[in-house]
Amino acid sequence: MKIQIKKSTILIGLLLIVGFILPRFAGEYYIHISVLVLFYAYMAVSWNILGGYAGQHSLGHALFMGIGAYTSTYLFTVIGLTPWIGMWLGGAFAGVIGGFVGYLCFRYGVKGPYFALVTIALAEAAVYIVTNIPSIGGAQGLEVAWTGNAPQLMQFDGKSGYYYMILVMTIIAVWLSSWLIKRRFGYQLLSIRENEDAAEALGVNTLRLKIQATVISAVMTALGGTFFAQYFTYINPRAVFGEGPSVQILLFAIIGGIGTVWGPVVGALVLIPIAELSRGWLGGTFAGAQILLYGTVLVLTMLFMPNGILGLYHKFLGKFQNRQSDGGKSEAL
């Protein structure tokens, strides 16, 4: 057990070192891919707290991403408020909406596929609502005005500034996610996922916990939404509230290993470079080829390794080490 902890500490240490010195060696294109990896890892980690730990599968998480992106961008373009403050206002807004949605859903016992449907409907409704409000850009969306190299406005010359920002966000998110799951709160979330009735019978306040998980997940996702807007400098209703981002937010968690701390990161780390590089090779000729790849990987993952990459890894690990009894903990962590 001790050796394992050490190994993982070394591994994380190495990852961090590589992470922080990467921009010194990599070209802009590879930094861009790294930004995408980190961004989607971050989003998947955020989704995973509600979808993976608590087992409430939101298929409309773009709702929160969009709220974050639109709040900070609107405040920036209209009153010039720096996105560094705007992102927290967006996070707070998303947290309130998340709490409200969570309360409504879980108060009325919406669960399983029905919860997925409610979240899809909410995100889709948001697409049409934002599309029909001209003062926040309507269908055209909003553009983030470029003000030059202005770190105080979350705008950086070159990509390394964004890279370090999302790197720090991802580290904090992973740390938060691993800290939560080791606490009473995390175990209670897992108990809800495994058997909600039993958890309730044992005195777990499932309603409150599920709402809390929704709020945490929503706030984190919204903060990522602000980063998305600042990095791509353009948002529109479909791009941030649509079914595309909703799927991409959870895709990497599912493929990497749902409900695990590192699964979402592994999923993004494995899949995005492949997708981006193959897009480079194919050129712009095949619109949709990248999503086609994601869909194929998703179907194959569900068919042949339903617990994702990490699930498969642990399975092999178990075979080779004859599985020292850790109470199935390694599967949860």
Partner: peptide, 19 residues
């Protein structure tokens, strides 16, 4: 399989067919 896997499988199918 668990519902989430079934959901994700058919979501994957829709991504494949659409694209």
């Amino acid at each position: 399989d668990p519902p989430i896997n079934q959901i994700m499988l058919t979501v994957g199918l829709s991504l494949i067919l659409q694209n």
